[in-house]
Design a protein around this nucleic acid. Structure first.
Lengths: 197, 197
DNA sequence: GTCTATAAGCAGATAGAC
DNA sequence: GTCTATCTGCTTATAGAC
């Protein structure tokens, strides 16, 4: 194996190639969802995407870069969702927390198996600057919000709430739960309990 | 790769061989802790254990069986700990929940990196009957306890509390947290909030 | 019972034709 | 730009010596 390269942006994409890149990423996502990480080989991804390995390597310098990009997109979508929620606060701690968690649950329930696989995958990858930044952004948004509400140790609280949410939602996904409202309210109960007790 | 075999008990151990088995498992644990799953090859484990691959395969029918046994032991220890806690209830929901979580936190903080690695690994392995039973035992103990306290939907609550705890503790481990008391009290706050709100 | 050496298979990655 | 064919290295697993 050569040096691990995480950043696919070194190979700036042609506009027309975006469809190919998307097809590759979508193929990888579907393999992760249906067969797990072990089945995610470059050949399998290329097959499923309807291209050859050679083409895959034209767009991604390695398997790791492909996975990193997948995480980057997922995380980006989540952060945008949370940021949008943060933009319209109800200035009531409990309602705002509920809104955050609702957004996170909605995001995870869109493609539960994929979200879970990426959650597990992320800590094992050498994250590039952008992905780290996205995670930091998420924590920062929550942290800033908590601070505004006068929560003590807002950074630690943000980490705890994110972890708690991730844990509960991933577990729910594993048991096949799909009831957004129920899950969201249970997570909110734990989160608000954490904050107000 | 041949058929995946998870159950090492097909090869009943000689009494004197237990030391070798322990050495192999401990070597695997240490590699998981220090270098992660990718570094855990059968050769690396054998090396670190001071035996040859041949010997390893005499005790474990495959890499998967080795990992399964590692999980079985860890989970067994946790379940025993939780069961012991359940045996002396304070008959006060909050205090009992705190005791459970204290036990779980203590367990995870014993070898945080290992516990985390196994938590991530477990869902990817084809679990044998005994490991599944251990997990079910854990959920059952918590569930029965919650039912005794009149909690509604005790099975779902047990799953949620276990997931919430796992999520928070694993995340804390990743950031290098070692303060048992602080972590334990934060998790308890979330758990009690979940139950009483 | 434990070792060494090696077989067998596969994944990641590349070269070169078209 | 995309494909086919191939190489290289590594991992699992086994065979056979001691």
């Amino acid at each position: 194996m050569s040096k691990i390269v995480v950043d696919p942006r070194k190979r700036p994409r042609q506009r027309r190639s975006e469809a190919t890149v998307d097809a590759i990423l979508e193929a990888a996502a579907r393999i992760l969802e249906s067969d797990g990480l072990d089945a995610l080989t470059t050949n399998a991804v290329a097959d499923r995407a309807g291209v050859s390995v050679g083409s895959l390597y034209q767009y991604f310098p390695g398997k790791t870069a492909l996975l990193a990009e997948l995480i980057r997109r997922e995380r980006g979508a989540l952060v945008r969702r949370i940021a949008a929620t943060a933009a319209k606060p109800a200035s009531n701690l409990e309602a705002d927390v509920a809104a955050f968690i609702d957004a996170a649950v909605a995001h995870q329930l869109t493609r539960p198996a994929l979200a879970r696989a990426l959650d597990f995958l992320e800590p094992t990858l050498p994250l590039d600057a952008e992905s780290s930044t996205l995670n930091a952004n998420l924590a920062d948004i929550v942290s800033a919000f908590l601070m505004r509400h006068g929560v003590t140790a807002p950074e630690q609280a943000a980490r705890d709430l994110i972890a708690l949410t991730k844990g509960m939602v991933d577990a729910a996904g594993m048991t096949g739960e799909t009831d957004h409202a129920s899950l969201s309210s249970r997570v909110t109960r734990a989160a608000v309990g954490y904050l107000l007790r």
